[in-house]
């Protein structure tokens, strides 16, 4: 990494030495803020997860009791199962739609400049707005089902949002609607970054379009796949707003996710110790994905 190295030895005058220290002085506040507000807070929450905190932090040490309790709670079980369903469908569907749209848009489409923003704009919206829109669209009384009935398809039924077994899938629908355009943009950038001469060479070699994509192009999109996976998975684990706006976690607890679980146990049920332990588990899940990724990225740069 090329950079200046103005480190002069001891005999420099005060101004010179000040100049040498300035970069560190400037970075120091950010570093302090990060150490306290991110890593300090993480440490504090980890600590709380081993205490008997309820409405307020309390410092009675209880070992792993919160964690063992946590896994006894039916709602947590639901939340984890839901997360598994939601995250896998969300990641897979977003990737498929995103990749498909990117490939289609990359076929020298007239009006690409018009279509691309339409695919992308949902991600400028708040999940609360997205949730509001889909909440009513999926509402059987006034939404899609009602519209189909009015159009004469009397037997049409689409009440997933009211159905405890299916409600989690409505969250997938809304989340895919919001994020798939973004994944499209990532793949499109990847596609545009591929050297055109390679494609021409492959065509000279007699590759069909399908073979071209399967053998030449998709393998080169590996970084885009990886980025998409990392970003979508961390979004999925953090998902909170959308659930609140779309289903409020219901019906019952049917659409609870770890994020909503943590919030309700910590702030409304006054089980701070258990809330903290659920947050720690969320953090560890994300860390398991992010740390190797960031480590590889930063090492590569060196």
């Amino acid at each position: 990494m090329a950079a200046t190295d103005p480190m002069l030895s001891g005999g420099a005058d005060f101004r010179t030495r000040l100049q040498n220290w300035l970069p560190k002085i400037v970075l120091a506040p950010s570093l302090a803020v990060m150490v306290i507000f991110v890593y300090g807070f993480i440490a504090f929450t980890v600590y709380l997860s081993f205490t008997d905190s309820r409405m307020l932090p309390s410092y009675g040490f209880v070992g792993f009791e919160n964690y063992s309790d946590l896994f006894q709670i039916r709602t947590w079980d639901t939340a984890v199962t839901n997360l598994a369903i939601f995250a896998s469908l969300y990641i897979v569907i977003c990737t498929i739609i995103g990749l498909m749209l990117a490939i289609l848009l990359d076929q020298k489409i007239r009006g690409e400049g018009f279509l691309r923003p339409i695919f992308l704009y949902p991600m400028a919206l708040s999940f609360i707005v997205t949730g509001t829109a889909w909440k009513w669209m999926l509402d059987p009384a006034i939404g899609l089902e009602n519209t189909m009935h009015l159009w004469g398809w009397e037997s049409f039924e689409f009440n997933w949002i009211k159905d405890g077994d299916m409600a989690i899938y409505t969250i997938v629908i809304a989340a895919v609607w919001q994020s798939s355009g973004f994944v499209m943009a990532m793949f499109l950038a990847g596609l545009r970054g591929i050297d055109n001469e390679i494609l021409k060479a492959a065509q000279m070699d007699g590759a069909s379009n399908f073979q071209l994509y399967r053998r030449i192009i998709l393998p080169q999109l590996r970084p885009a796949f990886l980025s998409a996976f990392v970003i979508l998975s961390h979004l999925a684990i953090k998902s909170y707003d959308l659930v609140i706006a779309l289903t409020g976690g219901g019906p019952g607890n049917a659409t609870a996710l770890p994020a909503t679980f943590m919030y309700s146990y910590t702030f409304t049920r006054n089980q701070m110790g258990i809330g903290a332990s659920s947050a720690v588990i969320m953090l560890m899940t994300i860390a398991a994905i992010m740390v190797p990724y960031l480590y590889a990225e930063l090492r590569e740069k060196k």
Binding site: A3, T45, P258
Partner: peptide, 30 residues
Amino acid sequence: TKWHFRGATWIFGLLLFSCFIPFQIVLIPM
């Protein structure tokens, strides 16, 4: 980037990771 010093990559790595933490982990102390 322009005043690179020892440990800068580490500091950046720590900052970067903070982008991705689930904010639930900081809600209580915050």
